[in-house]
Computed example of a mutant assay.
Amino acid sequence: MPAFTFEKISPPARRAPAATTPKKPRGLISQMMDRVAERRARRALQDEGPMHQDDKPAE
Score class of each variant (00 low, 15 high):
Met1Gln: 06
Met1Tyr: 07
Met1Ser: 09
Met1Arg: 09
Pro2Tyr: 01
Pro2Arg: 04
Pro2Trp: 01
Ala3Arg: 08
Ala3His: 07
Ala3Ile: 09
Phe4Leu: 02
Thr5Trp: 12
Phe6Ser: 02
Phe6His: 02
Glu7Asn: 05
Glu7Ile: 08
Lys8Cys: 09
Lys8Met: 12
Lys8Leu: 13
Lys8Phe: 10
Ile9Thr: 11
Ser10Ile: 03
Ser10Glu: 14
Ser10Tyr: 06
Pro11Asn: 10
Pro11Arg: 07
Pro12Gly: 04
Ala13Arg: 05
Ala13Asn: 03
Arg14Cys: 09
Arg15Trp: 09
Arg15Asp: 13
Ala16Thr: 02
Ala16Gln: 09
Ala16Lys: 12
Ala16Tyr: 04
Pro17Met: 01
Pro17His: 02
Pro17Thr: 00
Ala18Asp: 11
Ala19Asn: 15
Ala19Ser: 14
Thr21Arg: 15
Pro22Val: 07
Lys23Gly: 03
Lys23Ile: 12
Lys23Thr: 11
Lys24Thr: 14
Lys24Arg: 13
Lys24Cys: 01
Lys24Ser: 09
Pro25Tyr: 03
Pro25Trp: 03
Pro25Thr: 13
Arg26His: 08
Gly27Thr: 15
Gly27Lys: 06
Gly27Gln: 04
Leu28Phe: 13
Leu28Lys: 13
Ser30His: 08
Ser30Tyr: 06
Ser30Trp: 08
Ser30Thr: 15
Gln31Ser: 04
Gln31Phe: 01
Gln31Leu: 06
Met32Gly: 06
Met33Pro: 00
Asp34Tyr: 05
Asp34Gly: 06
Asp34Val: 02
Val36Cys: 08
Val36Thr: 11
Ala37Gln: 14
Glu38Gln: 14
Glu38Pro: 01
Arg39Tyr: 04
Arg39Pro: 00
Arg40Asp: 10
Arg40Met: 14
Arg40Gln: 14
Arg40Leu: 12
Arg40Gly: 10
Arg40Ala: 14
Ala41Gly: 07
Arg42Gln: 09
Arg42Asn: 10
Arg43Pro: 00
Leu45Ser: 07
Leu45Gln: 12
Gln46Val: 10
Gln46Arg: 15
Gln46Asp: 13
Glu48Tyr: 10
Gly49Tyr: 04
Gly49Glu: 04
Pro50Glu: 08
Pro50Asn: 06
Met51Ala: 13
Met51Phe: 06
His52Lys: 10
Gln53Cys: 07
Gln53Lys: 13
Asp54Leu: 07
Asp55Met: 13
Lys56Arg: 11
Pro57Glu: 09
Ala58Val: 05
Ala58Trp: 01
Ala58Ile: 03
